[in-house]
Amino acid sequence: MVDRSDLIVTGQVTRTWTAWDDQRQYIWTHNEIAAHTVDKGSPIQKVVVSEPGGVVDGVGMRVAGMPNYAQGEEVMLFLERMPNGYLRTLGLGQGKLRVAVDGRVHLTQTGADLIRIRGARPGTALESLEALPASQVRQLVTRLVQQRQSGRQQ
């Protein structure tokens, strides 16, 4: 998940809104995150995460299994840049960890709209992150990011 993320941030959801895309094809729900920390990608203060679906002017659009965000939520996010420029949650909701008031992370989704189920394989199982302190997860992520960078230089 670290490899496939363009941006890994921890922050708070400050605002959500819905809008048609530029082509007026699809309705998207945009979620603004005030970033506290950036563990992969360029340092940034604000991030907008967009997911398809929402209601605009009496027209609704719904796609099953898309992650959703609530204002005020503390989250750790693994984000992927789409061809249209939007940042989306990696692996649908798999890339959204909720950070509880006690500072521990909680998975919010186990795999969603008809994603293929992965068999068990070496690596860090996402489930093993459940209820770990966010600081510990960030250490793990930072270490993986650094490993990948030094790997590329060799």
């Binding site: 699809y26 796609v63 994603i115």
Partner: peptide
């Protein structure tokens, strides 16, 4: 590709009248 992302196999865009 932007709509689908890299993870879903397929999706259905259901447009509906909110009313």
């Amino acid at each position: 590709r932007s709509l689908l992302g890299s993870t879903v196999l397929a999706l259905t865009t259901c447009m509906y009248m909110a009313s």
